[in-house]
Design a protein around this nucleic acid. Structure first.
Lengths: 231, 231
DNA sequence: ACTTTTTATTGAGCTTTACTCAATATCTAT
DNA sequence: ATAGATATTGAGTAAAGCTCAATAAAAAGT
């Protein structure tokens, strides 16, 4: 006896436009990658999430890696936009650094699973496919270059500050904090951590003040007061 | 016509002690993991490198992941030992920090391929197997805790220094620098980078030097204003 | 309204690779 | 020399990424 009801016949998925199907697959892919990580994620699961068969996914994306790459690209575009538009509202080197750190920490906290996938697979990946991802990362972290350059030009920062060093320090530290968060399953305190990290780095790179009474605390206070008065 | 010479019959590998074979497999595994990365590395290649058949590898190690885990363990044991023995020779907070940073940078530069594998697979890994790896990492980075605590006790460092923050900053920054090195295929200048990073962080965490113009009145005002602004 | 063209969808199958296991060869102890 | 222990093997399994010819449905053309 053959039971047709348990071995249910698939209902063919309604035909969709290239764009719509493509987006649905991307959304499902992000979900599954976040849940299982890149290596453990199955294309079959992504297809099932969308309600199509495995082959359909490969009709739209040439490979699993290309799929994760597209997920990353979308994510980077969003957060890069967020940083660029928010940065304009913050005057002063310290405020801008704080904004960058706080925003990046927030992104890491709220998208820890995806960030973990991104960082792992952009590094483990084939050299070719990972290149554009690294470009996206460069675009995302680029604002810090101008912030530091401006700070140096104003005499607010030491002239010998190494920009790559500052970038490594800020983004590396935040990334490290994210791994700890993922391991311990405890959320990062974004505001407090952002302020502490920014303070540490800012103290590390600011030009020594001739006027000794103009201490860090006072300088930061002045900045805070100014930013309030500006609103 | 069947050509027996091209399809050469395997010569059975001479029987070895558990210990000797185990070590040989570990060494070959490290090579292949470094060359290809964890995901792309094939157990068959590791076996071929040793001169045995694939099944032999699984006689000694239950899985590919267990194999990479053992490679990591060996590596961590070596570098942890190196740090612990060298640290005793350096007096003073700054010197010890500089030694830690320089040593870690050197390790990263000289073992970039393996470090990349370790960092990726300890994070992507199954939760269970990655736990002992994280413990090894904690052991390796632990010396910094005592260094900072001593520095604070001596009054050399600010009392409010967050130890996790300093650890994240130092190790995160170095790790970030390593990724850049791997991407750009350019070697890190260990001495120069170590000094710059240590300087930045040390300036960020050292206690402010007593300075008379920073009077108690100003300090109290700063505190009052800050607390008002925080609400 | 009917035919043709295009293309979204399918499911069966191919390939690769981690992993298993019963059989066999080789070493050691008695 | 015999027996037991175990190192080694090669064939085979399963899972998952990926291919492709066939099919169905929408769009375009007449």
């Amino acid at each position: 006896m053959l039971n047709m009801n348990t071995t249910q016949t698939r209902k063919r998925a309604p035909r969709q436009s290239r764009e719509a199907r493509s987006q649905a697959i991307l959304a499902a892919a992000r979900q599954v990658f976040e849940r299982d990580g890149y290596a453990a994620a199955k294309v079959a699961d992504i297809a099932a999430e969308v309600g199509v068969v495995e082959g359909t996914v490969f009709h739209y994306f040439p490979s699993k890696r290309a799929l994760v790459t597209r997920v990353m690209e979308e994510f980077y575009q969003n957060i890069t936009q967020e940083v660029l538009s928010g940065l304009a509202e913050h005057p002063g080197t310290y405020e801008q650094l704080l904004f960058l750190v706080r925003t990046h920490l927030g992104v890491m906290r709220d998208n820890a699973a995806l960030c973990s996938v991104i960082l792992n697979s952009s590094r483990d990946a084939d050299r070719e496919l990972s290149k554009d991802i690294r470009q996206l990362n460069r675009d995302y972290t680029h604002p810090i270059v101008d912030i530091i350059k401006q700070g140096i030009a104003r005499g607010e920062l030491r002239a010998d500050v190494s920009i790559p060093l500052v970038r490594n320090t800020l983004y590396g530290s935040i990334e490290h904090a994210m791994w700890v968060q993922l391991a311990d399953e405890t959320a990062i305190d974004v505001d407090s951590t952002a302020r502490q990290l920014t303070d540490l780095v800012y103290r590390g790179i600011r030009a020594p003040t001739r006027d000794t009474s103009h201490s860090t605390e006072v300088a930061q206070l002045v900045n805070r007061l100014n930013s309030i008065l500006d609103n």
